[in-house]
């Protein structure tokens, strides 16, 4: 016999919404929930990025904890008793959606976002009543769209400050660090140094920030222009996976095509070559097949 002992994986038992679950040690609450089909809303969480747990829509109630805990990053402890749908959890999730909805333009956010807002009964307008304050209208993050290059645009009126773009530009993928969070509090924004235009910044146009943006604040210029022209129509689009035509690394490209025209390019997060990330050539260098 030639048996190779499997590495011993400790498991822990936790209770989620009254159900007992056994998961490997170190599993996050969100993944433990997943094993029994409990879906957790997220915004700043993405499987190919380090959890920053800033949006707080994934919070759950853990017995013995004074405050709610973020499911996306907290590993389970043995015997943990978790409630994912308690009154406190529902209240916090609802309020987080309302807070964002009252200050950020969510018109191009992932469809998931709108569904979750409805699910939790969020009514953002109650937080930002118009015409009642002598201190002007309730604050929003409204600001002009930044169009400073031909490849992608930045519309920070749509930014929920999830930090994903900063992570993708920085230590989780590209290591270019062209952008960071600047300022503080409600005035915090994603910014280059001294808010300089991208062509003067360190940006190398890998577009990995676009790839992770959940709200369309970062958008291909092609998509931005088509939306402006009223021609953007996702129902007429297909997505086909193929391999980048450039260097020999072999990155998977998902070509999003509308009317036989590539309108944007992404890469699957779960592919172990790219982990969702590309370079400028793969992301934007496809125009040549359309100069017909």
């Amino acid at each position: 016999m030639n048996a190779v002992p499997l590495p011993f994986v400790r498991t822990v038992e936790v209770t989620i919404d009254g159900r007992t679950v056994r998961v490997p040690e170190g599993t996050t609450i969100i993944n433990a929930c997943k094993t029994i089909g409990i879906d957790t809303p997220t915004l700043c969480y993405l499987e190919n990025l380090t959890p920053v747990n800033v949006c707080r829509v994934c919070v759950v109630e853990v017995e013995g904890s004074r405050v709610l805990v973020p499911a996306c990053s907290r590993p389970v402890d043995p015997g943990m008793v978790i409630h994912t749908d308690s009154d406190r959890v529902r209240h916090s999730r609802k309020l987080v959606f309302e807070l964002l909805g009252s200050s950020v333009d969510l018109s191009t956010a992932e469809p998931r976002f709108k569904a979750d807002m409805e699910k939790y009964g969020a009514a953002p307008e109650r937080l930002a009543p118009s015409g009642h304050s002598d201190h002007g209208a309730p604050a929003t993050v409204q600001q002009p769209v930044k169009i400073d290059n031909d490849l992608y645009v930045r519309d920070y009126s749509k930014c929920v400050l999830c930090y994903k773009c900063v992570e993708a530009c920085g230590t989780d993928a590209q290591h270019t660090f062209a952008i960071a969070v600047a300022g503080r509090g409600f005035g915090a924004t994603i910014s280059t140094e001294f808010d300089t235009d991208l062509p003067d910044s360190a940006c190398v146009y890998c577009g990995n920030c676009i790839g992770v943006c959940p709200t369309g604040a970062l958008m291909f210029k092609t998509e931005h222009d088509m939306r402006a022209a009223g021609t953007w129509d996702e129902s007429r689009q297909t997505a086909t996976d193929t391999i980048c035509p450039y260097c020999g690394v072999g990155c998977t490209l998902s070509l999003h095509v509308q009317d036989n025209t590539i309108v944007k390019v992404t890469s699957p997060n779960d592919h172990d070559v790219t982990e969702g990330h590309l370079c400028i050539k793969g992301r934007f260098g496809w125009q040549f097949v359309q100069n017909r």
Partner: peptide, 10 residues
């Protein structure tokens, strides 16, 4: 507020 989490920032 440092601006990091939604409940406090907004």
């Amino acid at each position: 507020s440092c601006g990091q989490c939604v409940p406090c920032r907004i």
